[in-house]
């Protein structure tokens, strides 16, 4: 449990509160990533994101959740030693040289849902699911990562901030400013990711928070009290432009390669009403995963550009 067990060889990324290095675990020679948290920059001591990341990764142990190998302090900085994950779903989606099949998408969805299901089973909300945070291991496994916005499921009287999740993946209840939301916000994000995997372009790319509502409801219909009880009690609801919900046929046309059960799964993950939106258990038990094609073996999926 000390810095001398690891090397930092190459800086691969820098965020607002952390620098990520690639390195090696000296004892095993394995590649690792070290996330160095710039603790000295925070006037309130240890930063909340750092605390969250450490707190939740310490508890989670699942093949589809990033593995925290070690933590150490060095020069007053907090260092998280994480498993080495060479790429992520955002890179793969954007790289037009990578071809992937419906079976590959199914495999990624399965792994993502299993990972998030495990997070939820531990009573944790991730609150920042997006392709960029679904990392991919050298053997093709999806790893849910970045728990900087995660938190434990609140007690019934606790208030939550609705200012979570990267905009394009933000559930409608969050757009409305809900304070007592549930696991359903994570499921929505996965639903949007599913759509993006099939389209290979972002599904609901709002330009700002207001526009996000517009884009979301234009694609999926403006919710009414009938399908989503009390939605009209949210402030700002009355200003909304009313769009009809898309028919199954319209979805078929938009998601041209999707099977019926793929559409069913997607529709239920993107259900407006969070109370009836499917949870991860329902998603994992859906017909989509039982019908053919079977999900690809992760190791067989091409995740790097194929040189032609």
């Amino acid at each position: 449990m000390s810095e001398s067990n690891y090397t930092k060889e190459k800086k691969v990324g820098e965020g607002t509160y952390a620098v990520v290095y690639l390195g090696k675990q000296l004892s095993s020679g394995d590649s690792i990533a070290v996330k160095e948290i710039k603790t000295s920059e925070f006037k309130d001591g240890l930063d909340m994101s750092a605390i969250r990341e450490v707190k939740y990764l310490q508890e989670l142990n699942h093949p589809n959740v990033i593995n925290l190998i070690d933590i150490f302090m060095a020069y007053d900085n907090l260092n998280l030693v994480l498993e080495f994950l060479p790429t992520d779903l955002e890179v793969v989606i954007k790289d037009k040289n990578i071809l992937f099949t419906p079976a590959d998408i199914k495999s990624w969805m399965l792994m993502t849902l299993r990972g998030v299901y495990h997070v939820h089973r531990n009573f944790i909300l991730h609150r920042d699911l997006k392709p960029n945070n679904l990392l991919i291991s050298p053997d093709g496994l999806i790893k849910v990562a970045d728990f900087g916005l995660a938190r434990a499921v609140p007690g019934p009287r606790e208030m939550l901030t609705s200012n979570v999740v990267t905009r394009w993946y933000r559930a409608p209840e969050l757009l409305f400013g809900a304070k007592h939301y549930t696991y359903a916000v994570d499921v929505w994000s996965i639903g949007v990711i599913f759509a993006e995997l099939m389209l290979r372009i972002p599904y609901l790319p709002g330009q700002d928070d207001m526009n996000q509502m517009e884009v979301t409801f234009r694609a999926l219909g403006t919710p009414t009290d009938k399908q989503w009880p009390e939605v009209s009690s949210f402030p700002g609801y009355n200003k909304l432009q009313i769009y009809p919900s898309p028919s199954r046929d319209e979805l078929r046309k938009r998601f041209i390669a999707a099977t019926e059960s793929a559409l069913t799964l997607m529709e239920n993950m993107l259900m407006m009403n969070p109370q009836t939106r499917w949870n991860t258990i329902q998603c994992l038990e859906s017909e989509y995963f039982k019908e053919l094609p079977a999900p690809s073996d992760p190791a067989d999926i091409n995740i790097f550009s194929q040189k032609v």
Partner: peptide, 18 residues
């Protein structure tokens, strides 16, 4: 009690989750 509150219902609050 919470189950009846509008802001809870609209947020997707579910007593069975609790």
């Amino acid at each position: 009690e919470l189950e009846k509150r509008k802001d809870y219902i609209a947020s997707g609050f579910r007593t069975d989750f609790i």
